[in-house]
Simulated scan of single mutants.
Amino acid sequence: MMAMNKRNPSEVVEKLVEEWTLQPHPEGGWYRELHRSSLPVVRSDQQQRCAISTILYLLDAGSLSRWHRVSHADEVWTHLQGAPLSLWCLKPEADQATREVLSMHNPVQVIPADHWQAAKAEGPYSLVSCCVGPGFSFEDFTMLRDLPESERPAAALAELI
Rank of each mutant, 00 (worst) to 15 (best):
S103Q: 05
N5D: 14
F141D: 03
D140F: 01
A51N: 02
M143T: 06
Q47P: 00
L90G: 06
R43V: 01
P9V: 13
P40C: 07
L157A: 15
A61Y: 05
K91A: 15
I111L: 07
H115T: 04
G135M: 07
S137H: 03
W88N: 05
T21V: 09
T54S: 15
A118V: 05
P153V: 03
P40V: 10
A94Y: 05
M4N: 09
C131R: 13
H79W: 15
S10A: 11
V132W: 00
L85T: 08
K15P: 09
V12F: 05
V108Y: 05
I52T: 11
K6W: 01
L144F: 06
V70R: 01
W67N: 04
Q23F: 01
C89N: 11
T54F: 00
T78H: 14
G29Q: 00
L16P: 09
H115K: 00
S65W: 01
W67Y: 14
C50H: 05
S150V: 14
V17S: 00
Q96F: 08
V41R: 04
G133T: 10
Y125F: 12
Q117N: 04
D95T: 11
A97K: 07
P24W: 12
L160M: 12
D95I: 07
S126E: 04
S53Q: 06
E159C: 12
R32W: 06
E75W: 07
D146T: 15
R145K: 15
P124G: 15
C130G: 02
Q81W: 10
L102N: 07
M104F: 10
H79L: 08
A154V: 14
F136G: 01
W67K: 08
L59H: 00
N106Y: 08
D60W: 08
L144R: 02
N8P: 07
V108H: 04
R69D: 03
I111M: 06
Q109P: 00
R99S: 05
E159F: 11
G135H: 02
L160F: 15
Q47A: 14
L87E: 05
S137W: 02
E100G: 04
Y125A: 03
L58N: 02
A119T: 07
H79C: 04
P112N: 06
S126T: 15
H68R: 05
A156S: 09
H68W: 11
L80C: 11
E11Y: 04
